[in-house]
Write a protein that binds this DNA or RNA. Structure first.
Lengths: 188, 188
DNA sequence: AACCTATTATACCGTTCGGTATAGGAGATG
DNA sequence: CATCTCCTATACCGAACGGTATAATAGGTT
């Protein structure tokens, strides 16, 4: 792993545990086994490091979400695939997911939220699109695509947050339970 | 409003918009029309300000949640009352709710998350208790109280977050839709 | 051999950080 | 009048902040 990649990995780790504002450039460089000028050589400034980090990591998950939200007129199947995509990504990128989640809920005027919001919005819109298409097959869902997208992503992130705290494991059983609850509620 | 109260209001406002780490004590004092020594006179240090602020505000919402989660063997009624409690509190304390939400998702090793987590946990446990009691009346819900508490609170916060972004208004219609979706899913 | 890029080591910049020391003023209470 | 509490004004502290300048070194490319 070269220096650039190592700096990014260290940044994800430290931002995830103490936040973007809570970690200094000096510590980032030291932890990556690199000097400050080297860090500035690659990323220009602290914000640049954050942005390049997010661009790289989000390009992966957002591509996966794009594939998973392809609607084939079988909504249960698509929802299962989508939730599975998130669960798998979160399992394989625990630290990044924790970091990204904190930034998604960070104050609106903070640098980290500004940097992350466009990628979150992309995901949001892909899921909305899915429900708009599905509503053509299920009339009673019409006009609720925004609420469905929000609550599905909210539920996904709720379960992932549980797993990040160690309360639950993101396995097939939980996946089934999540999708079933989303589709049919708690009675059944 | 006296100085102490004004400092707290200013702190909520600034922490909500730029985060605990993103706001300095100097700015807090200036914005409250007070000098730094005055701020330190009341709160000892920055962390003390945060803790006293949270203690005051959370004692209100957590008491409301305690009342709302009193189970009377009518789960739909209780859920409606609980969600209404959250929606009303969020409507009347928008800025605080935004701040608290950011801190709830902040990195685990950040001061703001440490300070806020015990209050969140209290809420969580009250809602879990509700579902444990309800499971005695609805056998098929047994053993899922943790997941139900997490997803209900997740959904509540999702809708409140939507309203804080201006996408939705927290009215009776949305309240009905949220509870209905939680109980019966998106099909129906 | 000359050159280029990546990188080091070190030292520095101005600013802001959280926090404190000192001395004194204003208003109510005794 | 004296005292007490609250508060101001100002100035300071050491440490950390983000960021830069300089000069030198090592390794691969032409």
């Amino acid at each position: 792993m070269d220096n650039r990649a190592r700096i990014i990995e260290v940044a994800v780790k430290l931002f995830a545990s103490r936040g973007y504002d809570g970690v200094g450039v000096k510590e980032l460089a030291e932890e990556a086994g690199v000097t400050k000028p080297t860090l500035y050589h690659y990323f220009g400034n602290k914000k640049g490091l954050l942005e390049e980090l997010l661009a790289e990591k989000f390009s992966r998950i957002n591509n996966l979400v794009k594939e998973a939200t392809r609607y084939n007129h079988d909504l249960p199947f698509t929802l299962n695939r989508l939730v599975a995509t998130y669960f798998n990504f979160a399992k394989n990128n625990r630290i990044f997911y924790r970091m990204q989640l904190a930034m998604a809920f960070a104050p609106v005027d903070s640098e980290s939220n500004k940097a992350v919001s466009k990628y979150i919005k992309e995901q949001y819109e892909m899921v909305e699109d899915l429900f708009i298409q599905a509503a053509e097959d299920h009339g009673n869902m019409k006009g609720r695509h925004q609420a469905y997208a929000a609550t599905l992503l909210g539920m996904i992130n709720t379960y992932i947050a549980l797993s990040l705290r160690g309360d639950r494991e993101l396995n097939d059983e939980l996946l089934y339970q999540a999708v079933h609850q989303f589709m049919h509620g708690i009675y059944s």
